[in-house]
Design a protein around this nucleic acid. Structure first.
Lengths: 386, 386
DNA sequence: GATATTTTTCTTGTTATGAGAATAATTGAT
DNA sequence: ATCAATTATTCTCATAACAAGAAAAATATC
């Protein structure tokens, strides 16, 4: 383990502390992280010189003594761009260093690998000029629906049909800013940890649904990747023995019961009228379509069973459900809770909160921002934090 | 993160390297761990001065150049004692620093908290004098059937009926050597990593059965403890909806299907002749008692279902089954494999090896040794593995 | 204005890593 | 036998990071 690892680790912890608690003082950072005051002072000075962190005067506290300096992440100091590549769209969001989105948009995408780097480079340039900021683009994070190696090679993205694509190198060549790439589920979990419902929770399980079901295990303050990177692909937990077929080739996975295509398929089978989108499903559920409500209730039961397994294994303080699930909370939650009541270990589940997060609905594409931000303030970027 | 953390981390990594590859050279340690040669040299010197590591001349290699020094863990430098406290017995093993057991024995135990510290102190003294070594006792590791806090307090051990016992302080007061305490399942997993079938495997799932079923998640080279320490209590994964009642108060847990009491109970119910021990069960299975074989096959199916869940969540390279399960491998394995075939994700389970480990049968009580060894080589590491 | 208090920075010391030179120990060629 | 080549380990010195305590800065209260 190298020496600079400590500096980066501490710098990251301090930056995170400021993000989750704006206007915190150095003294409080010391109290909360246990890092020595000299070290905090020195790292804050560095951040301050780089323009990443601002010192704000704080309203008088009526206490004697030198008043604290409120520390905040400078919103003006630079831009982070998040890119999310999906089967049929590419989403862009430009955000300040504190993760607050400035503007976002999506463009149609034919899924072709050829020319995608230039397409994304133009998209990034457009979103940066659109948001009207002059600061540097400090990093671009690219969230991809597939598994990546440590070297930044996308091994396989089923919905795109891509295989063995060296995405980091490819996008780095086309873009001027440092590129960080990652799996979409893991990136979304990171976003929840940085900006969302799981802020500062060191251990949680994240699940999201959309065109598929993904997820991540957030353990000891970091995403667990496992020996082969497949760990945490929670869309393929088996929940129904000999159940529905899944795009992965197996059967009984969580994904075909909870993903938008899976739900639409089932509703279409039962009513002869297949919904065209998740919004469509929600509208029919809102109009009290019994079949749709029933399908969602069943999805909730299956989801609850998957969560129960996870609770019994990890005993996590938090399970966070994002993506389409968040909008469907009213239809899913009762079944989820019924299933957990029945299946989860009582003395464990009592310690677990299950929440539905709106983050990915309200501010989509933040996964990429989280990836880039983690990279920019994190361990693998000695050029940013000297 | 403190500075000395790096030194401890590196020291531990180097010691582990020497343990798993005796007669390794400094040069190879550098190559395998990435630690700088100066650092390796300095840490080896420290170990050498402490007498923990020996430098051995190595047979000539017919190559030019200064010959390497073979490094081994000194077997003479000190003793480690492992203690395993169970419902009705206390087991002791004395081992050299390399983890090789010198002698072991077990004594009957009434489970009473009162006077147990003195009892264990005598037991440790006896096993040390019995093994005939003069070296210092460098550490005593105590493996307990319950959950511990970071401060070394045993929160609750159902089979002993103990609650809120400050075990580290209690045993430290009675013993002369440094005391390390930990959960039995996690300690056993650590032993598999240090001396057993999982040696140097950075990610594996460990399960063992005996009077109960325990386990551990070994992730990224360390036991995962989770937010509350309950993570990895794999005996309480739910495997059968509305299934058998478990000592934990719930129902459908893995434990009542796989533990010795659970198996004995079921066999007794079906035959009217309850086996008195696991050995008894094995003998009847060996004599082709169809009921017993059937009960074991069912246990294997349930176990296979639990393993399938774990495989789909972690995609681990290895799942290790220890304790009574190891002896029952012939009766369990077919059902485990059938269940996994049916339930586990094919592209994941193909990467997972399921093995039965004899370690805890052949050399019992090594869990405590692993606890102590981990503590002794990580200089001022905490004395608890919750 | 003096004093107490609180927050942050500076000074100084210690320890660790890391790059490269130096040393040590051997083989093989001359 | 001696020397060159080779390989393994140790030493030297520079740099980086943390850590403890003194000092400085900024404010409230008396």
């Amino acid at each position: 383990m190298s020496k600079s690892y400590i500096r980066h680790f501490n710098a990251n912890a301090i930056f995170h502390r400021i993000r989750i608690e704006p206007n915190v003082s150095q003294r409080d950072i010391v109290a909360r992280t246990g890092i020595d005051k000299s070290v905090v002072s020195s790292i804050i000075n560095q951040f301050s010189e780089l323009g990443l962190v601002e010192r704000n005067p704080v309203a008088t506290s009526n206490k004697p003594g030198r008043p604290m300096e409120g520390l905040t992440i400078s919103p003006e100091s630079g831009l982070i761009v998040g890119v999310q590549i999906e089967a049929d769209t590419i989403g862009y969001v430009a955000a300040a260093l504190d993760g607050i989105p400035l503007c976002s948009r999506a463009q149609a995408f034919d899924g072709k690998l050829d020319g995608v780097a230039d397409l994304v480079a133009r998209g990034v340039k457009d979103i940066v000029s659109e948001c009207g900021r002059t600061g540097d683009t400090l990093g671009v994070g690219i969230s991809l629906p597939g598994l990546l190696t440590d070297e930044g090679v996308l091994l396989h993205a089923p919905v795109l049909g891509w295989r063995g694509v060296p995405v980091v190198d490819m996008f780095s060549a086309a873009l001027d800013a440092p590129v960080f790439a990652g799996n979409d589920g893991k990136a979304a979990a990171m976003a929840e940890y940085m900006f969302g419902e799981c802020i500062d929770i060191k251990d949680f399980i994240y699940l999201f649904s959309g065109s598929g079901v993904g997820g991540a295990l957030f353990l000891d303050g970091d995403i667990y990747r496992g020996a082969s990177g497949l760990a945490g692909e929670l869309g393929h937990i088996k929940v129904v023995p000999q159940g529905r077929y899944c795009s992965c080739g197996g059967s009984g996975c969580l994904s075909p019961y909870l993903s938008e295509p899976g739900l639409a398929e089932e509703i279409g089978r039962l009513t002869g009228n297949r919904p065209s989108s998740f919004k469509d499903i929600m509208e029919r559920a809102g109009a009290n379509d019994e079949v749709v409500v029933g399908v969602l209730d069943n999805a909730g039961a299956v989801l609850g069973s998957a969560i129960s397994s996870l609770v019994n294994i990890f005993n996590p303080p938090l399970v966070c459900l994002g993506g389409d699930m968040a909008s469907a909370e009213p239809y899913l939650r009762p079944a989820v809770e019924r299933a957990m009541q029945r299946l989860a270990h009582p003395s464990m589940s009592v310690q677990t909160k299950v929440i539905f997060s709106q983050l990915s609905t309200v501010s989509p594409f933040l996964g990429g921002v989280a990836l880039a931000l983690d990279g920019v303030t994190g361990l693998d970027s000695p050029h940013v934090l000297p």
